[in-house]
Design a protein around this nucleic acid. Sequence first.
DNA 1: TCAAAAGTGTTTGAAATACACCCATGT
DNA 2: ACATGGGTGTATTTCAAACACTTTTGA
Lengths: 256, 256
Amino acid sequence: MVPQKVFWGLLKFIYKTINSKENINTWIRDLNSDAKSAVSVDCVIFGYDEKELNVLSIDCNMPPHIGKKSLIGDLVKVHETLDQAGQRILKQRTGIEDLYMEQVSAFGNPNRHPLGRVISIAYYSLLRIRNYEIVDNEDKHLEWIPISKINTLAFDHNEILSVCLSRLRKRLKERPIGFSLLPKKFTLIQLQKLYEIILGFELDKRNFRRKLHSTELLIDLNEFQQDVSHRPAKLFSFDYEKYNAKKEKQTLKFDL
Amino acid sequence: MVPQKVFWGLLKFIYKTINSKENINTWIRDLNSDAKSAVSVDCVIFGYDEKELNVLSIDCNMPPHIGKKSLIGDLVKVHETLDQAGQRILKQRTGIEDLYMEQVSAFGNPNRHPLGRVISIAYYSLLRIRNYEIVDNEDKHLEWIPISKINTLAFDHNEILSVCLSRLRKRLKERPIGFSLLPKKFTLIQLQKLYEIILGFELDKRNFRRKLHSTELLIDLNEFQQDVSHRPAKLFSFDYEKYNAKKEKQTLKFDL
DNA sequence: TCAAAAGTGTTTGAAATACACCCATGT
DNA sequence: ACATGGGTGTATTTCAAACACTTTTGA
């Protein structure tokens, strides 16, 4: 005789094995069938040109969005990380390599893409337009559009842009991502204008300078602008070494 | 005679249409083939029990992680949003319905899952353990584990947990998510203890109270604890209506 | 000498922090 | 009366915000 306890235990085990959602065969089947989704990465590349903030866009040639602009994006390959996908897409579509991008959010509305289920992971990055030559490899009117002139984009790209813009503005205040948008030697006026353009509102000159100096991360070069028809401004550079050292030692205070 | 310009324009158009990465047929083919990934949602459900902060976990029965604990998660269905997937998974695995969850991040390392490419979107939520009866539908040792006792989890779930915990702590300071973890009528001491347990450090009693009162969102019930063997504490409740009204009017100040 | 942009300090109010003693109740 | 945990206020410092005039240069 088999003890009841053993019998029921065995029965339960068999039941579990057959029915478990986590049964490996179920997983393997799901993984290879209709449970799969297409996953894309969309890159919101912000470009600064000393006048305004722009976004990199291309023509969308997919019905029903033909004629609209869209962000640059593509499906994620099976072998690559999401970060790598972002890098690849950027390089493929623009020729730009090795640009730091930050993941922002996943967008998964099942109706967001006309051809079926495409879940998109959004990334943003920020660069100085004149430091990069963008190459329209795919001849899709790759172009910078001022964010003030953005109209209806394809898919849910307006929403993605909006979320990424919020993230950019938040980061600008808490990390030194603005300094790569200026020449190595810059004036405080240039820096302030940059902050104002990206944030979208004006700042107080004296308070801005006080905050910047209080970080102790600006190097006073004791050099001055040349060939300007007014009082030449002092040149500064940003001390990335000191910044990293402070971050290591957790004595960093950078909050504008 | 066709003008050269028209001829080359046409040729270019044809070339583009055939070769474009965005060619619709290419997309459709990609969407239905190996470019697809499995996408899962993993839910980090934090549970508060007046003593410590816990995470909901189940046994992982997938090699090579058998014996480890894992977060609750499942593949996303084709027809559902990511948010809906989170809700479904939670209900399926625990019986809990309608719990607000916030998306935190996507994890896409191609080696993170032993059975192949599975991109995971992480969500977190927070609840009061004694308000919910969790039902282990799938008999997988569904249980609350104190975060102080978490060891190696399956997959990359330690990383996911860590990112979600940071997010939870950030949110606790800027949104009133803590009040749902207490009885409707609570004492300030209970509230402070809750903040200390979740944040992981102690707070100053007087400063904490001052901050709370300055939000003007606590309702002084003029009632007191009963049956305690010491001075009974005053009871308060949180004014959700006023909170929502202030949020609408953008006059909200809630920053602890 | 004028136009154009650069540079510079102080005051005020709000918020963060640190800190120690008395109070009300049940036993 | 005592043990237990509840409750309260002030002084100090730090940070944010508002604000106007002088300086330097080239034309």
